[in-house]
């Protein structure tokens, strides 16, 4: 096992002590199979226990450890140390979110927006459980499956310049999940979701930079979801214009 030397420049901020964030440098001898998260954990355990950040699963599925690594939003548990070998690596909290403390950002905004787009199955009539499952062909499943893979890590929000400029924008992950339910053969909630999505700060603030999809560590392609959503939203708008609005 060989070692990889890294110089981590970590953005530190404690609102009780600091006026503004500042960088602190740590030298870390990393094992070559480590991820950046392992290096940060090493700092926390062995060098500076005051460092704060979120992490849990270490397998790129819980979405806790999104952070800016050399300026790009990434999951620290999925960014291999050897890709940064013998270099300075800048680690900052996810861009476009307020910094709560060190690498921890305030995520309330996303939680509120996610709720707004009604990311759950909406039915005009519920089918009783006793009648079994809704049939859904593998093709129907595949139509929306990709968009169910979002882990809410918020890397896409950190990558989105429109969210940076217009914080009211509902944003990639939440809208992609709205699209996920619209595209689910079991769902009948398109018209209801349309009310939120068609607002100016809904899907229309997206200018299709595609940076959300480039950043997505789970290859969800929110940019695709949002463009599809623009089309369905437009169709729905014209339908409502001529009085045929219901899905």
């Amino acid at each position: 096992m060989s070692e990889v030397q890294l110089e981590l420049e970590i953005l530190r901020y404690d609102p009780e002590k600091d006026q503004e964030p500042h960088f602190k440098t740590y030298q870390v001898a990393c094992r070559e199979e480590w991820m950046i998260l392992d290096a940060v954990n090493h700092v926390k355990d062995e060098v500076d226990t005051t460092l704060s950040y979120r992490w849990s699963c270490h397998m790129a599925v819980c979405g806790s450890c999104g952070m800016m690594i050399d300026g790009q939003p990434k999951l620290a548990c999925k960014a291999a140390v050897k890709d940064y070998a013998d270099k300075k690596v800048r680690i900052e909290p996810l861009a476009n979110f307020p910094i709560e403390r060190d690498l921890v950002v305030v995520q309330d905004d996303f939680m509120e927006k996610l709720k707004r787009v009604k990311p759950y199955i909406i039915r005009k009539e519920e089918k009783p459980i006793e009648e079994g499952e809704y049939k859904q062909s593998p093709a129907d499943l595949k139509r929306f499956k990709q968009f169910t893979l979002c882990i809410n890590c918020l890397c896409c929000y950190a990558a989105c310049p429109e969210y940076a400029l217009t914080p009211e924008f509902v944003g990639p992950a939440a809208l992609a999940l709205a699209h996920r339910y619209n595209a689910d053969s079991r769902d009948q909630g398109l018209a209801e979701r349309h009310k939120e999505i068609s607002k100016p700060e809904g899907v229309w603030d997206c200018s299709f930079t595609d940076t959300c999809s480039i950043a997505c560590p789970k290859h969800v392609d929110p940019a695709s979801a949002l463009q599809q959503l623009k089309i369905t939203t437009t169709v729905q708008w014209y339908k409502e214009l001529i009085g045929m609005g219901d899905k």
Partner: peptide, 14 residues
């Protein structure tokens, strides 16, 4: 301009 985003976007896309 704000209300008819869908209209303008459809013209833009077309």
């Amino acid at each position: 301009a704000k209300v008819n985003k869908a209209l303008f976007w459809s013209l833009f896309a077309a």
